[in-house]
Design a protein around this nucleic acid. Structure first.
Lengths: 138, 138
DNA sequence: TTGCTCCTCACGTCACGTGAGGTGGC
DNA sequence: TTGCTCCTCACGTCACGTGAGGTGGC
């Protein structure tokens, strides 16, 4: 899969993918200078998650880098998982993955709470306006 | 109220206020060159609303300008309201205000739906991980 | 061979941050 | 008079957009 396909699948532009690689948000396995980049399905997923965290929660690329420290660890965990069959090891890996998911959920819920409080404020405003309208029509 | 107080009250910086004035998001009543800007309580409210629409929904300043066409109209409505006592006129004004509030609510609800669908996806991921953990421990 | 996509500079833009140097009001 | 805040340039930065000019793969 080349860069154009990746960008299309993830819903962004080729330039954004190159920029994310430049600043280290996406992996840049060493290529011959001028040769094409190659990507897989997990790159699509990773990029999609980055884009959603950015557009929905408004995180900066620096903040994304911190969150993605967890995401990079996620891939490492997958590989470790394949390489071990020790149940104790596997349990540790799953517990780490759970922690990462929980911290993302925390972020999303906090943001949702802010959105809901704004929504509530607008609803009150609507109530007042509707009330005023009823007064006038009555 | 001067620019520093306005920025503090609204939770932003002096530079941002000046920039918003420069691009026409905040009013720039003509001053003598070099003299101080003056603001009131409604400027605080307007700025707060701008900042929330930007940070929560991720709107660009161009998009804010469109939304604020409605907000500017809101102030105009307030003045019109004071100047008329004709019930038909007043009814029209309130109906316009309601429409503006409803369109903001639409924006907020759409965004909230996106956030909730991301939250749901993370919750599913959490479920799968918790399930895997139970398998390992059992 | 012809299109389409890819590559690397490199300058432009949006939304401000951050001094530089100077002036106004309690 | 001394601080603090204000003012206007103006250059810097972050997260890309947008060509310019050239190369690679079906």
């Amino acid at each position: 899969m080349r860069i154009g396909a990746l960008a299309r699948e993830a819903g962004t532009t080729v330039r954004t993918v190159r920029y994310y690689e430049e600043i280290g948000l996406l992996p840049s396995d060493p290529r011959e200078a001028g040769s094409h980049r190659e990507y897989g399905e997990d790159d699509v997923e990773r990029l999609r998650e980055l884009l959603r965290l950015k557009s929905l929660l408004g995180l900066s690329l620096d903040e994304l880098r911190e969150v993605m420290a967890g995401e990079a660890a996620r891939e490492v965990r997958r590989r470790e998982w394949q390489e071990t069959s020790d149940p104790a090891e596997r349990e540790r890996i799953v517990r780490e993955a759970l922690e990462q998911t929980d911290s993302l959920l925390e972020l999303v819920r906090r943001h949702k709470a802010d959105v809901e409080s704004f929504e509530a404020e607008l609803n009150e405003r609507r109530q007042r306006q509707a009330h005023k309208l009823r007064e006038l029509v009555a």
